[in-house]
Design a protein around this nucleic acid. Structure first.
Lengths: 153, 153
DNA sequence: GTTTATAATAGTCAGAGATAGTCAAATAAG
DNA sequence: CTTATTTGACTATCTCTGACTATTATAAAC
């Protein structure tokens, strides 16, 4: 018997194709369509629609809440970005992050202003409140998410 | 289902644009136009048209009462940014941050791609590894630092 | 004119409703 | 045995509602 997660995965992927790259769902609705608990939707998303695999996920709670999944475009800039994203480990130092960012500017993948935003968001200064032992992990998460976004917009 | 609050918000914002910076409404009238309780109007105003976000709200009760919303003049992008930066407390929720960011886009202070970077860097998703009691503080630090950068570059 | 009553507004706040997220235990698959 | 999946209890966040309160204008009474 096919796994439910796989079924939900392909359902979402088909919708993404139909909608040309993006889908917006309501978690509970989708769950009841497949007769499963809502948290299974989270499971599917977190195992199959990860950044590594080229998807960008946003959500909002409360009345009218939603989950949206966007498939990243694949062109050469994005290829390069994706390559970098997957190469970033779970932790990254400020210095290494800056080197990556500078490379993007040098290769004309991002504008200086965008580079500044990336640097500002990943500097030690800003992560002072994060316990030292977690700092590089948080930095990696921020950087990856920002780069992911760049591949979409 | 789209959120009523969002619909009312855009209705008001459009009126503000049409009327060149100001709108005056009657709470009950607006509420019945959108088939909601009057206090929902207060909710929309208090979550989307705060002083922090560059709006000035006045009202008056009693016969002929009204609510007026004025958009503050933005002399220069930097002034506006500085105004926002100083108004941000030491902690900020994801939603509040998003509203700020959207306002920057609406006012043409930043580009959509830059907005995406700001959102990506301040989302809960990315701050998962930060202890929840510190999360809003870290978010505020990141946001402020990024905005500071924008005033320079 | 001043005072008082009434009607017409708007404001506040707590709770209900509507979503989505997290995490760990139970179960199934490989 | 190890890993992946499924489940559900608990939590977090955002929105909507309604009862109660506060303020202002206007009309009525004096």
């Amino acid at each position: 018997m096919a796994r439910l997660s796989d079924i939900i995965e392909s359902f979402l992927k088909e919708m993404i194709i139909e909608e040309e790259g993006t889908v917006e769902i309501q978690r509970n609705e989708l769950a009841s369509k497949f007769n499963c608990v809502p948290s299974q939707i989270n499971y599917v998303i977190s195992t199959r629609f990860t950044a590594d695999k080229g998807y960008y996920v946003e959500s909002r709670r409360g009345g009218g809440g939603y989950i949206s999944i966007k498939r990243l475009n694949i062109d050469s800039d994005n290829d390069y970005l994706m390559h970098i994203i997957t190469s970033i480990e779970n932790r990254i130092s400020q210095l290494t992050a800056e080197v990556f960012i500078q490379n993007f500017v040098d290769y004309n993948i991002i504008k200086p202003r965008e580079a500044m935003l990336l640097k500002a968001a990943t500097s030690d200064k800003v992560l002072m409140l994060v316990p030292v032992e977690r700092r590089d992990e948080v930095r990696a998460a921020i950087l990856k998410n920002m780069l992911m976004g760049l591949t979409v917009l």
